[in-house]
């Protein structure tokens, strides 16, 4: 991700003495995050483990993760961006409007204390979840927090890392980045990659009815997406590759059962800190892997006429 100030979870384990979770609930959603990577581990430069670290939780409600935190800051819903912007001003000793602080649900003392801790730590880290990146402000919230982490490096070492949900969602971003230059929401309809979330992001495409076929790879939008998006998937030919017959499979023209990733299909997946890890599937199953089925579809398409002359190095006859 361009310009993101980040690190690996190994660095967090060995160095971080201030750990701030923002809009995430690791106790329930990433149960081993505390014990394997962050607060509970003893690290090279934090030899006493939990005693050497301070954990702050910023969220709109007191989730089970709050029990693990030293400090819990309850932000008023939709005010995350404002809190981050206030922090960005306060770290530079700029005056802030008390009325603006009051609106966030936090007090000036709480923010001053947080700023003091952020500046005093040796290695600070923000872990931000969907409570920040998927609520009002969306990617602007993430951008603000990443900027705050970058600006904190004028005082001390500070990094930020998103708490990624699904197993290989990070891998999807990484692969698309190094093949097309962009992480997601990429159109290749002009023969070269164009990136524009909002235009080429799935929900927007489906709700506007822009796409006229869909290949769904290990996802179940038929169960999770807004109804107008599902309606469009029903209208167009949809193809599903999944280890199970899903809601989406039932509204699709084609379903192909594939081996489950990490269970009976091997390969590589990326951890949330962009470290690639090999899979060790314990079982052998009766179904082909996603990789094999997608390759066969690609090979079958490649035998047909080019949609654009000269695509994929194939030069059209004069």
């Amino acid at each position: 991700m361009g310009g993101k100030v980040s690190c690996t979870l190994g660095e967090v384990k060995n160095r971080a003495d201030l750990i701030i979770y923002w809009g995430g609930n690791p106790a329930e959603c990433h149960p081993r995050h505390f014990t394997k990577y962050t607060i509970m581990q003893k690290g090279k430069y934090v030899p006493n483990g939990r005693k050497d670290r301070t954990m702050v939780l910023v969220d709109i409600r007191e989730t089970p993760s709050a029990k693990a935190a030293d400090i819990f800051l309850q932000v008023r819903p939709t005010k995350d961006f404002e809190v981050i912007t206030l922090l960005r001003a306060m770290i530079k000793d700029q005056p802030v409007d008390e009325a603006a602080v009051a609106e966030t649900g936090l007090s000036l003392e709480q923010l001053r204390d947080l700023v003091a801790r952020m500046k005093a730590c040796k290695f600070g880290v923000f872990f931000f979840g969907m409570g920040l990146s998927m609520t009002r402000g969306k990617h602007m919230n993430s951008a603000a927090l990443l900027t705050l982490a970058a600006e904190m490096n004028a005082f001390t070492k500070f990094v930020a890392m998103p708490m990624r949900g699904h197993g290989n969602v990070t891998g999807g971003d990484v692969i698309l980045r190094y093949t097309t230059g962009y992480p997601f929401g990429i159109s290749l309809s002009r023969g070269y990659p164009r990136f524009n979330p909002g235009e080429f992001s799935t929900i927007d495409l489906l709700i506007r009815g822009d796409c006229d076929a869909a290949l769904i790879l290990g996802a179940d939008p038929g169960a999770t997406m807004p109804q107008p998006a599902i309606e469009h998937l029903k209208r167009i030919p949809t193809i599903v590759l999944d280890p199970k017959v899903t809601h989406t499979s039932r509204l699709a023209r084609v379903h192909i059962t594939t081996a489950a990733t990490g269970i009976s299909a091997g390969g590589t997946v990326y951890r949330m800190d962009e470290i690639p890890l090999p899979l060790r599937p314990p079982l052998k199953g009766p179904y082909p892997t996603d990789e094999e089925v997608i390759r066969r579809i690609r090979e079958a398409v490649a035998k047909k006429a080019d949609w654009m002359p000269g695509m994929n190095g194939v030069v059209a006859a004069a």
């Binding site: 949900g165 699904h166 197993g167 290989n168 969602v169 891998g171 999807g172 990484v174 692969i175 698309l176 093949t179 309809s189 799935t202 495409l205 489906l206 822009d210 796409c211 006229d212 076929a213 869909a214 290949l215 769904i216 790879l217 290990g218 996802a219 939008p221 590759l241 990733t261 299909a265 091997g266 390969g267 590589t268 997946v269 990326y270 690639p276 899979l279 892997t289 996603d290 990789e291 997608i294 390759r295 690609r298």
Partner: peptide
């Protein structure tokens, strides 16, 4: 204008093919 969507529960090798 076909759409390819998902990628989170498949391997990197499969994503490359996609």
């Amino acid at each position: 204008m076909p759409l390819l969507y998902g990628l989170s529960n498949i391997t990197c090798e499969a994503t490359r093919e996609a």
